[in-house]
Design a protein around this nucleic acid. Structure first.
Length: 522
RNA sequence: GGCCGGUUCGUCUAUCGGCUAGGACAGCCCCCUUUCACGGGGCAAAGACGGGUUCGAUUCCCGUACCGGCUACCA
C-alpha cells in the first residue's frame, strides 16, 4: 500500500534563504503537488546560538513570494503541531533516553575543552581529524567507560552531558536514494554523533528522524551535503523501531559557484555582483544588507522556473515552465546527480523571457511599484497604478511597447520613465557634432507643423516629418536621432513616432523646443 | 588523511548500446531595425584518461585522474 505523500522542508532560521534552499523547497513542493500530497514546513531552530530574529518571518515571505505555500507549518497550523523544533524539546529527550536504555546510545560527559584536547592529542598525519568513534569512545568519559555508579552520580549531580549514538562496529548500512540509487556506508567509518546536546536540545540528527516519523513524512529530500550523515539517520529509524515507516530518501545535487569550484555562497554573489538570496535580507546584528532576486527585479515565476531547471529537466527542449507545468512534468528520477554551476546570465535570460511573454496586465502593478521606487513622477510606492496619479491604460500601452527590451523590472525605469515625465537630461552631445542651422530650422518647422496637426498618430507624424525633410532637402535618417534624443533624452527606447503618439502633442512639441533651446545656448 | 558522491561544448543540459553527439545561455558573423532591443539565419564549441564487455560504446564494468561534500554539543 502506498502511503500518502508528505514531504517537508526544514530550514533553520539563521539568515536569508539561499538559492539552494529555495530549490530544495521547490523540488519538495513539486513532488508533493504532483502526487497530491502535503508539503510541510518545519522550523529547525534547535541551535539557540545561531538563532536570528526575523529569519523565520523572512522564510515565510520568501515562500509566499515564490508561490510555494505550505499545507502545514508554524503559521498555517496542522495536525502535527508544533512545527517549531524548539517547542518539541521534551519529545526528543524521551526518544534519546529510549535509545540509551536500548543500548544504542550513551551519555558522554566530556567537556568542550576535553573534546578539543582529544582532537589535538590524536591528530596524526594520516588522521588529521580524529572522530569520537568506536575506538576513541573507549578513551573518553562516557557511560560506556565509566561505572554505572559513577554515571549515576554524575547524572544525579546534574553534570552537563550529551547523548551520543553508539555506532555499531562492523555493519554496512545500505539504502536506496531516489536520485543516486543504492548507497552504502560502513559503520566503522561513521562517528558517534551527538543526538541530544547538553542544553537538552536535539541535534539535527535526532530531530529530523523523530519529526519525520511523527509527522508521517513519506519522502525526505535534502541537499547532498547530508549524504554522509544518512547512515546515522537510517540506523536511528531502525533503533527506534520505525523501519517500516522510513521515508524514501533523495539527496539533491549542490548548486555551485559560477567560477572556480565549491558550493555557491552568499559571498560569491557579493563578489560577482548577483543575488544569492531569494529576497533582500538585512542581518539584524551587523545591519548588513544582502540583495535578493525579488528586489533585483526578478519575476517570481522566472525565479521558480530557473531554479527548477538547475539540476532537472523534463527530457525535452522546453525551458520555460509555469508552476502548473512544472508540477505536471516533475519527477525525482530526472534530477541530476552532479552539481550545477550557477549561471547568472542564464538566470537573466529566464527573467527576460518571462517579462517578454507576460501580458502587460500581469506586470502593471510590479512596474508601477518599480517606477515609484525610482521616483518617477506620478507614481506612488505602495499604490497600484490605478490608484496613483497615472492613467492605467497608458501604463499598459507603455509596458506593451517596451517590455521586450527589459531584462529586469528595473529596466522599466529608463525604458518607460520618459513617457511620464520630461527627461531630466538630454544627450545633446550626440546631436551637437552634426548639428547646423538647417537642422535647427527643420525642427522649428516640425514643431510648428505638429502644433497644427489635427490627428495625432505615429503614422501621420512620420509622414509629416518626411514631407518637411523632403521640402528642405534633408535626409530623414539624419533627423531621427536628434528627434529621438529630444523625446526620450538618449539613444534608446521604442520607435520615435510611437513615443510621440503616446506622450501626446504638447509634450512632443515642448520637448523639441526645449532641446532646441539647449542647443542654441551651447 | 578517511568516507561518500560526481565527471558530455566556457556554462546549464539531451542521449536510457547505433552519434553526422541535439538544444539553450554566453561568444562571433549576417539579416531585420534611420536608436536600443525583439526576431530570423549562420559559425565556433564537448564525451577527463586508461583498460575491459560488445558487431558496436558518451551510454555497461573496473582502475586512474580531477572536482565536490562531509569529517562540530551548526544545520
Amino acid at each position: 500500500m502506498d502511503k500518502k505523500v508528505r514531504v517537508r522542508f526544514a530550514p533553520s532560521p539563521t539568515g536569508g534563504l539561499h538559492l539552494g534552499g529555495v530549490r530544495t523547497v521547490l523540488f519538495n513542493y513539486l513532488f508533493a503537488k504532483k502526487h497530491g500530497g502535503d508539503f510541510i514546513l518545519r522550523i529547525e531552530d534547535t541551535d539557540q546560538s545561531r538563532f536570528v530574529p526575523g529569519a523565520e518571518e523572512y522564510i515565510f515571505n520568501t515562500l509566499a513570494w515564490c508561490g510555494l505555500t505550505p499545507d502545514e507549518s508554524p503559521v498555517h497550523g496542522g495536525p502535527h503541531a508544533p512545527y517549531r523544533q524548539s517547542e518539541r524539546k521534551a519529545t526528543y529527550k524521551q526518544y534519546a533516553e529510549q535509545l540509551v536504555n536500548a543500548g544504542h546510545a550513551y551519555y558522554a560527559f566530556d567537556t568542550p575543552e576535553e573534546l578539543d584536547q582529544m582532537r589535538v592529542q590524536y591528530k596524526t598525519e594520516e588522521n588529521p581529524s580524529p572522530q569520537y568513534n568506536h575506538v576513541l569512545r573507549a578513551k573518553m568519559r562516557n557511560s560506556l567507560t565509566l561505572s554505572a555508579d559513577e554515571v549515576a552520580a554524575l547524572l544525579a549531580a546534574g553534570t552537563p552531558h550529551v547523548v551520543r549514538i553508539k555506532m555499531p562496529l562492523d555493519e554496512t548500512v545500505t539504502f536506496t536514494d531516489m536520485i543516486r540509487g543504492e548507497v552504502s556506508f560502513h559503520t566503522s567509518q561513521v562517528d558517534d554523533k551527538v543526538l541530544l546536546k547538553a542544553d537538552g536540545m536535539p541535534t539535527y540528527h535526532l530531530a529530523v528522524v523523530v519529526d519525520d516519523y511523527l509527522m508521517k513524512i513519506s519522502h525526505a529530500f535534502r541537499g547532498e551535503e547530508w549524504l554522509p550523515s544518512a547512515p546515522v539517520h537510517i540506523l536511528l529509524w531502525q533503533y527506534l523501531g520505525w523501519s517500516a515507516e522510513m521515508p524514501q530518501w533523495a539527496h539533491l545535487p549542490l548548486i555551485l559557484k559560477p567560477d572556480g569550484n565549491g558550493k555557491l555562497s552568499k559571498r560569491d554573489g557579493d563578489r560577482l555582483g548577483f543575488p544569492v538570496f531569494a529576497m533582500d535580507w538585512t542581518d539584524p546584528k551587523t545591519g548588513e544588507k544582502t540583495i535578493g532576486f525579488k528586489e533585483r527585479g526578478f519575476l517570481s515565476e522566472a525565479f521558480v522556473n530557473l531554479l527548477a531547471l538547475l539540476g532537472w529537466n523534463d527530457g525535452t527542449d522546453q525551458e520555460i515552465f509555469t508552476m502548473e507545468e512544472l508540477i505536471r512534468a516533475f519527477s525525482m528520477d530526472r534530477v541530476h546527480k552532479g552539481g550545477a554551476k550557477f549561471n547568472y546570465e542564464k538566470a537573466l535570460w529566464y527573467n527576460q523571457e518571462w517579462i517578454k511573454r507576460a501580458a502587460p496586465e500581469q506586470l502593471v502593478d510590479q512596474v508601477a511599484e518599480t517606477l515609484a521606487g525610482a521616483g518617477v513622477e506620478g507614481f506612488v510606492a505602495g499604490e497600484s497604478a490605478a490608484s496613483a496619479g497615472v492613467d492605467r491604460e497608458l501604463l499598459l500601452r507603455v509596458i506593451q511597447l517596451v517590455k521586450e527590451r527589459c531584462t529586469l523590472l528595473a529596466d522599466f525605469v529608463p525604458q518607460a520613465a520618459f513617457f511620464f515625465a520630461t527627461p531630466a537630461a538630454f544627450d545633446t552631445a550626440s546631436i551637437q557634432p552634426k548639428w547646423n542651422d538647417q537642422k535647427n530650422m527643420f525642427f522649428i518647422e516640425l514643431a510648428k507643423a505638429y502644433e497644427s496637426s489635427v490627428v495625432w498618430e505615429a503614422h501621420d507624424l512620420e509622414k509629416t516629418l518626411k514631407e518637411i525633410a523632403a521640402a528642405q532637402d534633408l535626409k530623414p535618417g539624419e533627423l531621427m536621432l536628434p528627434l529621438r534624443i529630444m523625446l526620450v533624452g538618449g539613444k534608446f527606447g521604442p520607435g520615435v513616432f510611437d513615443i510621440a503618439e503616446i506622450i501626446g502633442k504638447q509634450a512632443t512639441i515642448d520637448r523639441i523646443r526645449k532641446v532646441l533651446s539647449i542647443l542654441e545656448h551651447n
